[in-house]
Computed example of a mutant assay.
Amino acid sequence: MFFAAEPYFGNALAVVYAPEGLSAEAVQCFAQWTILAETAFLCSLARPGADYRVRIFSTSEELPFDGHPTLGSAAAWLRADGERRAFSASALARYERLDASTLNTVAATLGVEPDIILGASWIANGPEWIGVGLASADDVLALRPNPADLGTLRIGLIGPHSEGRAEASEVRAFVGGDPVTGSFNAGLDRWLHDGGVVGGGYVAAHRTVVGRRGRVNVSFEGGKIWVGGQVTGCVSGEVRL
């Protein structure tokens, strides 16, 4: 499990040490069989200087990047169960405010009026996310959009918690079951930092609505944004590929 200090909370992830010569069709078949949002495969090196290569698959396709499989793979490679791992957020490939038409579409999809949205931006670092800021964590938690209405949109929300909580904000990502998403957090943190909303590290709560208590730790060091969380191993053994 990733982004959680307790077993069976946060995000589930399978990490598989892939044998040489395994075809893309074979790993995709296994990823589909797991029915997990992502499955990571540790493969032989692709370039000098790297310790390993990771390929990330959803149940339907290979992904260019995703946060918790990246960190979970590193933890598996290092056999670092129970430790916190973090990655440095990459530059954004798309980073711009939403136009009025897209903003209205997002508001309708979420079932809210456009004027309650405090800010909205494209934030893409592989997956193309739309980041939406609301006034409070309660506003974020109250939304129940119909998954069928989302179509191909990847919408992520953030709203601040009241003072006195360990978690500064509530974050939700409407894609594949409201998961904790490292890729969205990496883009979101860049958006918040550049907008002057945050200036230091913080903890974001995730998956509260589905009772999975995910936590993402964000820090700013050496001019870089670091996104991380706790790794908790639950199952180990062998699989047949």
Rank of each mutant, 00 (worst) to 15 (best):
R165S: 08
A166N: 03
R84S: 13
T70Y: 07
R154P: 00
L118A: 10
D139Q: 04
N146F: 07
L78I: 03
R85E: 07
A91V: 04
Y95W: 10
T152S: 13
L118C: 12
L153G: 04
R154M: 04
D99C: 10
D81W: 08
R165V: 01
S101H: 09
W122V: 15
V106Q: 09
L103Q: 04
R84K: 14
P145D: 08
V112E: 07
R85T: 05
D99T: 06
P147Q: 10
S90L: 08
N125H: 09
N104E: 15
L143C: 03
D139P: 00
G119D: 15
G119C: 14
E96M: 14
T70G: 05
L118P: 01
H68S: 04
I123W: 02
S136I: 06
L157P: 02
R84C: 13
W129Q: 01
Y95F: 10
A75E: 02
E83M: 15
D81R: 11
A124Q: 10
W77R: 11
L98H: 13
L141W: 02
E128N: 09
G159A: 11
V112I: 12
L110P: 00
I130E: 07
I117R: 03
D138S: 11
P160D: 15
T109F: 03
A166D: 09
G151D: 02
L150A: 06
S88Y: 03
P127Q: 10
D138L: 09
A166C: 01
D149A: 11
A108V: 04
L157W: 02
E128R: 13
T105Q: 13
D139G: 01
A107K: 06
N146S: 11
E170H: 07
S101Y: 07
E163W: 12
E128Q: 13
T152K: 12
L118N: 09
L143M: 04
G133F: 15
A166Q: 05
I116P: 02
T70K: 09
G156W: 04
I130S: 11
V106T: 07
L98T: 12
D99A: 13
L143E: 02
N146P: 00
E96N: 10
E163M: 15
E83D: 13
D81H: 14
G72W: 06
A166P: 01
A108Q: 14
E167W: 02
P114W: 07
E83H: 14
T70A: 10
G119N: 15
R154G: 01
T109Q: 05
T105W: 06
W122L: 12
T109L: 04
P127C: 11
P127K: 12
R79F: 08
T152H: 11
S73L: 05
P69F: 13
L157I: 04
A89C: 02
A148E: 10
L110T: 01
I116A: 11
S90K: 06
P127A: 14
W77M: 12
I155N: 02
A107V: 08
V106A: 14
R97S: 14
E83V: 10
G72D: 07
L103Y: 03
A108M: 11
S136W: 04
A74G: 05
